[in-house]
Amino acid sequence: MNRLRFAAWRLFFMLVSLWAIASLTFLLVAILPSNPAVAIAGPYATPEQVTQVENDLGLHDPLAQRYFEFLGRTLRGDLGTSLYDGTSINHEIAQLIPSTFELIIASLIIAVPLGIGLGALGAYFHRKFADRASSLVVGVLQSIPDFVLAVVLIYVFSAVLGIAPGPEGQLSIISVPPPRVTGMIAVDAILTGKPAVISDALSHLALPALTLGLVIAAVFARISRASLREALESDQTKFARASGLPEWRVVQYAFLTSRTPVLTYGAIIFGALFGGTAIVETIFNWNGLSQWSVTSMLRTDYPAIQGFVLVAGAITLVVFALLDVLAGFLDPRVRAQ
């Protein structure tokens, strides 16, 4: 397959998956036994009022009709309004998504070099001391759930050492939030240039980003160790060594062959991050999309839940597709499959 046909095929599959995700989020609410009308009408509503709300919501319409109305609405990009406070879900998500991205990007900045570094150490010094040490670090990181790690980091850096702020969100109460440019508070602070706000925002970002970053670094380390090990053991590497290339050149070539699996799993990790941020955002009172979605779930605010799953699934699928296309451009073997 040539590059363009591969990209086109991948995009087509992405669209089909998007449709599947939209249908799943519809089914999630249509099939599960909770009645949104009861949630809207409130605990003191009479049965007549509940029936009235059910009629308003169209819950008595045939399932197929509701499904196509839902699909039509979603296609127009309208995610509905919150049952809790009547705000537009689109607006709500647009407001909150930058701070979740801020957290994800910051944790990837920590995780990618650390994880690939640990993995490369393990692969290059296979079964030697450095490999054992890096495997131990990775094994420990993998056995610690993110919420435990967060609690440990808060205790050590905030309660004992006092060098990081406690779990109080993106800024201290006394800091004035910078004017909204991108919605990522640390970035906005840098763009609008207030030194005090910049350091406050960055110090609040440090612990949540470190928590997520360490957790994902362990995954990156395992993948890059396995794939770099394979590349270093290949005939190609033996040939490079036999040709008398300098060692750094040999490692560089091995790195190039090992990048495809690392990229592919990077996409999977990105998808999993939306789940991972839910817990980290909740602990650190980070005012982001995942924390909002958990709050919405506790309120059984079903349009908000649908909107979140839809947006998170869509973003993940787009990232999957982009990285696949990228991997296809970098590595012809992917296109051949």
Binding site: S17, L28, G275, A278, Y302, I305
Partner: peptide
């Protein structure tokens, strides 16, 4: 697997 499964799990358990 492209869905944030923890969130979907939370959604299922809180709705069901």
């Amino acid at each position: 697997q492209s869905l944030p499964l923890l969130i979907v799990t939370v959604a299922v358990v809180s709705l069901a």
